[in-house]
Nucleic acid binder design. Structure first.
Length: 701
DNA sequence: AGATGCACTTAT
DNA sequence: TAAGTGCATCTA
């Protein structure tokens, strides 16, 4: 008897909250399965999508088209499709976008060349010194290769860090300073030796392997523990995913696992080439690769036997995708990944790590959704001294470097150690006031403060990059201006004046545009580093003796209920940069609780004060938020009225509209605030159905 | 008439 | 997303 053809539901990469049905032709019957990529006809064109379901019926009345082809790889597992569907529902992003964006379209079987240093670190340092002048690029290259010592590094990864390096590699090989190695000739190192405290923590964590679960590891120096826990997962023949917040932090941790485990370890992030991502995708799917060190997008990889997910620096805001759909939080997504894995096979263990955990996570350890394991030394190292400088008592307050900080810098440099200065804003004067009307100068397009850049003598909008040559008030056109605030350029200028002999480097978005190789080289070589908070992430620095937070108030003063938390975390991160030495914090509010508790090395004290504040003002984790983003258009007011009307029957509050700080043009947002996650979810889903073209950010940061 | 621009619709 | 449509405006 004639059988009716099966129908494939295909999620296409178009911003529409629906999937499309196609007939599966007989020939493709066996290959068209859930999770595979399929080529389909759409409006007389061909497009690729992902098969998310196979059904017998279609609710589409007109004649259906048929699938054109099905690609065998790369593909998703059934559990991955379920995961993407959850993400689409949770973060209100079309499934087609969620599922197609991380999936590579191509796979390359590239033959990669790996290199290793043939000389020791000390010997390499001598050669580097000699090479520096004549061949700076070779010097930088050797620097990178020699610091990973017994590990190996591929040309692809090197050029990712330093730019085009082929000729320099050949030259260094000719000189006998490096050699090409096969990935298999790897020397395995034994696991790091742990303290009694750490051994106990490993034991406690590994005990959770049988049932799975969530653990927060609170403390510093977590790497050794990670190694042991990963070893346990691998011993069981299963895989581990190690997440870090940013690409910059991948290399170090990746190489420490590479030396341990060889080729079963891969690095993964969104910046890899399509082909490379495809290759890793397949290796994960087939089980050839068991350990992934990656950024948030690595949660989409098609693991078939995932047993462990480590989320290091779990408090870091980079885990939330902010710039494109879906606006997901990788920490929350791993929780669901865990649930889905549990359903399909076995519950994995989720291990969150931080010195200064997010308020949400720490709160969850009290409600017992997450188990807390603490290391004895939580944040402070015994030989790190923390000093808060009360700027109200500093006389020459027109300078950004107080005499105390200046003195500390002098002392640090004289000991041959390096200095890291953290400044929140880039440019010279981040605030320009008009003396006539008292208004700050703003970008007429974006409505954010214009920043004075000294080097170019111009006013710059940091958002749309528009340059204003005319130095006059945009409101009243007065030329009488007052320049205020502390930016990276201003600190740099002041440091150059105070310490003319020191080698200084500034690291912010302005200088990052410079050639990669120059930067990565000089950053290791400078005495004083001045940078935006990104320089305090991970542990990128060696030989640091002092971290100076030039103005803690610019962090505290942000219009954000998380300002105190962010400040505490930044300060805690600055400690991780140092082995021994000093942290100096300059502030006009030394009694502010984030600063006070940090100076006392008391995370719990901070947490209790912060959680009281959150409770009192009904902020997360006591309430749930969603941000409704209104792009600029003339119907804004009308839309706001509609939103109010639609939300009226729901048990949620509506706040705003507010101009989005630091975001383009006339963009405004409304905040939906509810007592349960369900109430916010139902309200926002209703909105999405009623008004298309709305951007909704669930659990915004 | 034909070209160009722009807002709006909608796909299986 | 991006092709197709209708409608207004411009050009010679």
């Amino acid at each position: 008897m004639e059988q009716r053809p099966l129908i494939a539901k295909v999620a296409l990469s178009i911003p529409v909250h629906k999937e499309f049905d196609f007939i599966i032709p007989d020939l493709l019957q066996s290959v068209a399965t859930i999770g595979k990529r399929a080529k389909v006809p759409l409006r007389n064109r061909e497009r690729w999508g992902v098969i998310i379901a196979i059904t017998e019926e279609s609710r589409v009345s007109s004649d259906l088209e048929a699938l054109i082809t099905v690609a065998d790889d790369p593909s998703y597992t059934v559990a991955d499709v379920e995961f993407c569907r959850w993400m689409s529902d949770r973060y209100l992003a079309p499934l087609g976008i969620v599922i197609n964006r991380p999936l590579p379209q191509r796979v390359t079987e590239s033959v990669k060349r790996y290199y290793q240093s043939t000389v020791g670190v000390t010997e390499a340092a001598l050669v580097i010194d000699k090479l520096k002048r004549r061949a700076p690029r070779q010097a930088a290259l050797l620097q990178v290769i020699s610091t990973i010592s017994t590990s190996m590094i591929s040309e692809a990864e090197l050029s990712g860090q330093l730019g085009e390096v082929r000729r320099q590699l050949i030259r260094l090989r000719e000189e006998g300073l490096i050699k090409e190695v096969q990935p298999t000739t790897q020397t395995r190192e034994s696991l790091p030796i742990l303290s009694i405290d750490e051994t106990a923590a490993v034991k406690q964590i590994c005990a959770k392997f049988t049932q799975g679960g969530r653990v927060l590891l609170h403390g510093r120096d977590r790497r050794g523990i990670y190694h042991h826990v990963v070893a346990e997962a691998i011993k069981r023949g299963e895989s581990a995913l190690i997440l870090v917040p940013e690409r910059l932090l991948l290399s170090q941790i990746f190489h420490s696992f590479r030396t341990q485990w060889g080729e079963i370890v891969e690095i993964y992030h969104g910046g890899l080439s399509e082909g490379e991502r495809g290759r890793i995708w397949n290796r994960v799917r087939s089980g050839d690769c068991l350990i992934i060190v990656g950024t948030r997008s690595a949660i989409f990889l098609p693991f078939t036997n995932l047993r462990l997910i480590i989320i290091d620096e779990e408090q870091d805001s980079s885990y939330k995708q902010q710039d494109m759909l879906p606006y997901y939080h990788a920490r929350e997504a791993t929780f669901m990944k865990g649930e889905i894995t549990r359903k399909h096979r076995q519950a994995p263990l989720l291990l969150l790590g931080s010195v200064a955990p997010s308020v949400e996570t720490f709160h969850a350890t009290h409600t017992e959704e997450i188990e807390l394991i603490r290391l004895k030394q939580q944040a402070r190292k015994s030989d790190v001294e923390i000093k808060v400088i009360d700027l109200r008592r500093v006389r020459k307050s027109d300078l950004c470097i107080s005499p105390q900080l200046r003195q500390a810098i002098t002392a640090t440099l004289s000991h041959g150690k390096k200095v890291l200065l953290i400044v929140n804003r880039r440019g010279y004067f981040p605030v320009v006031l008009c003396k006539e009307c008292g208004q700050s100068l703003r970008c007429p397009q974006c409505g954010i403060n214009l920043v004075y850049h000294f080097t170019t003598s111009q006013l710059l909008c940091h958002l749309c990059s528009t340059v204003y040559h005319q130095m006059r008030c945009s409101q009243c056109h007065s030329r009488a201006l007052r320049f205020l605030g502390v930016g990276t350029q201003r600190v740099e200028a002041e440091i150059n004046r105070l310490f003319p002999a020191a080698a200084t480097i500034r690291i912010d978005t302005d200088t990052m545009r410079k050639k990669k190789e120059q930067l990565s080289f000089t950053r290791r070589d400078s005495d004083i580093v001045i940078g935006t908070p990104m320089v305090a992430k991970g542990s990128q620095w060696t030989q640091l003796g002092l971290v100076g937070v030039v103005s803690a108030d610019t962090f505290l003063g942000r219009p954000d209920f998380r300002a105190a938390e962010r400040t505490f975390q930044l300060l805690a991160n600055s400690v991780s940069q140092i082995e021994s030495g000093r942290i100096i914090i300059q502030t006009y509010f030394p009694d502010q609780y984030a600063i006070r508790y940090f100076a006392l090395d008391d995370y719990d004290g901070f947490y209790h004060e912060e959680i009281d504040y959150r409770k009192q003002f009904f902020y997360p984790p006591f309430s749930y938020l969603a941000k409704i983003i209104l792009r600029d258009n003339d119907q804004q007011q009308k839309k706001i009225e509609m939103i109010k009307k639609i939300l009226a029957p729901f048990p949620v509050d509506l706040l705003g509209p507010t101009k989005t700080p630091g975001v383009k043009k006339e963009e405004k947002y409304l905040l939906v605030k509810g007592a349960t996650s369900t109430s916010v979810c139902e309200a926002t889903t209703a909105l999405l159905h009623a008004i298309s073209e709305l951007r909704i950010d669930i659990d915004p940061l």
